[in-house]
C-alpha cells in the first residue's frame, strides 16, 4: 500500500516509467526493421511477426515454464516469417510491400488461430531488475523496475549502429541496400545479404512481441499489439534509418503514450482523446519540423522501393 502521494509529480514519473515500460516493443521492431531496410527491403510483415511472437512466447512460456525459452521461440517464428518474406521477394518483379502486407495478415491469422487456448491461462513472466531500490518512494521504485529485454535493446542500438558504420559486414549491408549493381560487381550476394537482414529483423520483432505478452502488459490476447508493429516500421523512417535515433524515437513514443492516462490520474480529465493521440501528433510535428525541400533524406537506402 502506497503512502506517498505524488500529485502532479506523477505525470513526469509516468512518462519516464512509460518510456521504459512501453517502448521496448517499438525499440526491437524498429531496430530489426532498420537493419532490413538498410539492406534495401521494407518488411511490413513486422506487425505479423510481433503478434505471432507475442502468442508463441506466451504459449511456450506457459507450456515449458521458462519465459526465456518463450523469447527464443518468438524470435524463431519471426525469423521464419522473415525467411519467407526474403524468399518470396528474391524473385523478379515481386513487390516487397505487398508481400509484407500478406505476411502481416498471415502472421496475425496464425497467431489468432493457435492462440485461442492461451488467452485464459497465466504464463510465467520475464524477470525485471529493480533499479529504484535507492529510493524509498514506492512509485519511483515501480517506475524503475526495468526488464532485462529493455536493457538488451539499450545495448543493441549502439551495437547495431557500430556494426553498420564501422564493420565490413555493415559496409556490405549498406552497399547492398544502396546499389545492388555495385554489390553485384563486388561479388556480394545481394539476395543472401537481404535474406539474413530480413531474418534478423524478424527475429528482433518476434522478441519485441515476447516482451508484450511476457512482461508488459504481460498477457496474450488478440488486441495486444493494436498496430504497434506498423508504427515501429514508420518510426524507422522517422528515425532516418539510424539505430540510435530508433532508440530515441521508441522512448519518445513509449513516454508520450503514458501521457493520456497519467494526466487523467491527477484529475486533468478533459481532452483525453487528444492526449491519447499525443504520440502521433508528436511524430507529425517532428516530421514537419525536420523535413526540408532543400535537401533529400539522409541515410535513406537507395534500393528501398518506397524511394526508388
Amino acid at each position: 500500500m502506497t503512502e506517498t502521494v505524488l500529485g502532479w509529480w506523477g505525470v513526469p514519473l509516468a512518462i519516464l516509467g512509460g518510456a521504459i515500460r512501453a517502448s521496448t516493443p517499438y525499440l526491437f521492431v524498429s531496430l530489426g526493421e532498420c537493419l532490413t531496410e538498410k539492406s534495401g527491403r521494407t518488411n511490413l510483415g513486422q506487425e505479423g511477426n510481433l503478434v505471432l511472437g507475442a502468442m508463441t512466447a506466451y504459449a511456450v512460456s506457459y507450456l515449458s515454464g521458462s519465459p526465456w525459452l518463450g523469447v527464443l521461440a518468438a524470435g524463431a517464428t519471426g525469423m521464419l516469417l522473415g525467411l519467407l518474406h526474403a524468399w518470396v521477394c528474391q524473385f523478379k518483379k515481386v513487390n516487397d510491400i505487398a508481400v509484407g502486407i500478406a505476411l502481416m495478415l498471415f502472421g496475425i491469422g496464425v497467431a489468432f488461430f493457435f492462440g485461442k487456448p492461451y488467452i485464459q491461462p497465466t504464463a510465467p513472466h520475464l524477470p525485471a531488475i529493480g533499479f529504484g531500490n535507492w529510493s524509498d518512494i514506492p512509485q519511483v521504485r515501480a517506475a524503475l523496475e526495468i526488464n532485462v529485454l529493455f536493457l538488451f535493446g539499450l545495448l543493441l542500438a549502439p551495437l547495431l549502429s557500430w556494426v553498420l558504420s564501422s564493420t565490413r559486414w555493415g559496409l556490405m549491408l549498406r552497399t547492398v541496400g544502396d546499389s545492388s549493381d555495385a554489390a553485384d560487381a563486388l561479388g556480394f550476394s545481394v539476395n543472401g545479404v537481404r535474406m539474413v537482414a530480413t531474418m534478423i529483423g524478424g527475429f528482433l520483432a518476434g522478441v519485441g512481441g515476447a516482451f508484450l505478452s511476457l512482461y508488459y502488459p504481460g498477457s496474450w490476447n488478440e488486441g495486444l499489439s493494436s498496430g504497434q508493429g506498423l508504427i515501429a516500421v514508420a518510426l524507422v523512417v522517422f528515425a532516418r534509418w539510424d539505430p540510435m535515433r530508433c532508440l530515441y524515437a521508441a522512448l519518445l513514443f513509449g513516454g508520450a503514450g503514458a501521457l493520456g492516462p497519467a494526466l487523467q490520474s491527477v484529475g486533468f480529465s478533459s481532452g483525453y482523446y487528444l492526449f491519447n493521440a499525443a504520440p502521433y501528433v508528436l511524430t507529425l510535428i517532428l516530421m514537419i519540423a525536420t523535413c526540408s525541400p532543400q535537401r533529400t533524406l539522409t541515410g535513406v537506402p537507395g534500393e528501398l522501393s518506397i524511394t526508388k
Binding site: V5, A14, E222, G223, L224, G257, G260, S265, N276
Partner: peptide
C-alpha cells in the same frame, strides 16, 4: 477513460498511473 473496449497497453498504463497516485 482509455477510449476503447480492448486497449491492453493503455489499461496497463492507466492502472500504473492510478497506483502511483496512492
Amino acid at each position: 477513460f482509455t477510449g476503447d473496449w480492448a486497449m491492453p497497453v493503455k489499461e496497463a498504463e492507466a492502472a500504473n498511473s492510478l497506483i502511483d497516485q496512492g
